[in-house]
Design a protein around this nucleic acid. Sequence first.
DNA 1: ACATGAGTCT
Length: 625
Amino acid sequence: MIMAAAAVRRGGSEAFFVGSQIQRRQMKIMGMTLLSPTTSSPLSSNHSNFISSSSSSSSSNSNSNSRDKHKNDDASSSFRYINDALAFFSGGSSISSRDKHKNDASSFRNIDDALAYFNHMLHRKPRPCIIQFNKLLSTIVKMRHYHDAVISLSKQMELAGLSPDSYTLHMLINCFFQLQRVDLGFSVLAKIIKLGLQLTIVTFNTLINGLCKAGKFGQAVELFDDMVARGCQPDVHTYTTIINGLCKIGETAAAAGLFKKMGEAGCQPDVVTYSTIIDSLCKDRRVNEALDIFSYMKAKGISPNIFTYNSLIQGLCNFSQWREASAMLNEMMSLNIMPNVVTFSLLINIFCKEGNVFEAQGVLKTMTEMGVEPNVVTYSSLMNGYSLQVEVVQARKLFDVMITKGCKPDVFSYNILINGYCKAKRIGEAKQLFNEMIHQGLTPDIVSYNTLIDGLCQLGRLREAHDLFNNMLANGNLPDLCTYSILLDGFCKQGYLANAFRLFRAMQSTYLKPNMVMYNILIDATCKSGNLKEARKLFSELFVQGLQPNVQIYTTIINGLCKEGLLDEALEAFRNMEEDGCPPNEFSYNVIIRGFLQHKDESRAVQLIGEMREKGFVADAGTTA
DNA sequence: ACATGAGTCT
C-alpha cells in the first residue's frame, strides 16, 4: 500500500538528439558499417536509440542503463581486465621521456624557474619580441594556479615599454576570468578597443569561454546572441564552448539542440564538440548513448582523442563495465594514444572507490614505470582510497610523500585527509589539519566544514558540531544540502528527532529544497522510532516535492516494514523496485533477507538468497549467519 | 573550446 504513490513513473529521459529522424536513419546504417572487423570495437553493438525521438525506446534505454549498473563481472576479477591492458604496454619504453623538453619555454619545472626566465628575457638586450613573451606567459597559464602571476608579469612588460598584442590581451582576459574577475576581464576588452585592435572571433570566444568558466552562463549566451547580431559568425569553438556550458549546468537537451543547430548552420562539430557531449552523457549516466555518439563520430571520420577515451573509460568504469572499459583502453592504446596522468588518476580513483586500494597502488606503480608523473589529483585519489579504508596512517604517509615530491596539497587533499582522520575518529588531528591548511594559505570550503561537522556528529559531539556550523556561517560559507543532511543525521542518530524535524522545516524556508538523502535519513529515523505512520507521511511528501524514491529510500522503507513484521508489504515494495526504475542492489537484498530470517521465514529467505547470488551479489555476514 | 580527486543517507 505504501508503494501506491510510487506508481507515479519517471518520464522517459529524452534521447540526446530529439526529433532527428534523418540522423536516426544514418545511425542505423553506420551501426552496420561499424561492425566490420577493422573498425569495430567490442563496444559498438547494442547501443541503439540514442538518436531516437520515440519515447518508448528512449525510456527503455535509460532503464537498461540503470540495469547495467549491476556488477557484470566477478568482483575479484573486476580490475584484472584493466591491469592486463596496462601491463601489455607497460613493459615497453616510457611514454613521456621522448616528448619532454620539446622547447625551452615549456620545460620549466616550476613557477620560480619560469619567473626567473621572464626576468632574464625582460633585461636582455636586444629584448625579445612580444611573441616570445606570449609563449612564456601561456606556459605559466598552463601551469594553472598562477593567473595572478601572469597579470603581474604583463604589467611589468607594459612598464618596460613592451606593448601587448591581441594574443597577450586574450590571455589576460582568460586570467581575470579564472580569478572570477569578470569586471577586469571586460576592462581588457575596453583596452583592446582603445588600442584600435580588431575584435575578432577569438576575442568573442575568449570572453564567452571566460563567462562560462566564471559561472556567468546567462551573460555568455547574451554575448553569443550579440555577436551574431553584429554579423560575426560563431565558429566551432564558440558553439562548443556554449554546448559545454549547457552540459555543465545540466541542460543536456538544450546542448543537443544547439548541436543540431550548428550543423544546420554549416558548422561541423569536431572532436572537442563530440568529446564534450560524450563526457556529459557519461556523467549523466547515459553511457550507452555516449557510446552511440562515439560510434557515430568515428563513422563521420572524426578521430577520438585522449579526452574522448578518458571520458568513456570513466563512464564505463562507473557502471562496473570493466571488460568494456579495458577494451576501450586497449583500443585507445592500439591507436597509439597512450594513457596520461588523467587516465591513470581516474583509474586509481575508481579502484579506490571500489575498495581496492591494492590495485590502485598497482596503477600508481605502472604509471611511474611508464614515465607518467603523478599529480596532486593522483595522490589525492589514492589518499582517499586509504581514508575510506580507515587507513589514515597510510593516507598521511602518502600526503607527506606527495609534498616531498614537490607536489603541493590543495583544498581537496586536505579535505580528504581530514575525512580520513574523522572516519578514524581522530577528531583532534582532523581539527589540527583544518588549521594547518589555513596556515598554508588555503581557505577551507564548505566540504572542509561539512567533513569536520560530520566527524563531530559521528562522535555525538553535537554541541561542537553546532559551534562549527556557526563558525562556518561567520566565515561566509552558506550551508548546503549536505550540511543539513549531516546535522539531520547527527540529531537522528542521537535520538533528537524533534530537533531534526525542526531543522528540516527551518531549512525548507530557505532557498534549499530537501533532497532524497534527507528524506532517507528522516524516514529511517521515524521507522526506527517505531512511528511507521510518520514514515509513510514522509514518503508521500517526497512525491509532493517532485522527488522519485531511489534504491536507498526503498531499502530504508523495506527495512522499516521488516522491523515491524510487515513482511508481505516489504516484499511487495521490493518487487515494485524494478519497475520503478531502481532495481534492488546488494544492500536491498541483504536488508530484506535479514528481515525474513529474523521473522523465521526461512523458505522465502532462501529463495531470495538464490536470486541474489544469481545477480552476482554477495550476502553479508549478518545475512548468512 | 574537451577529460581526473573531497563531504550526507539504507
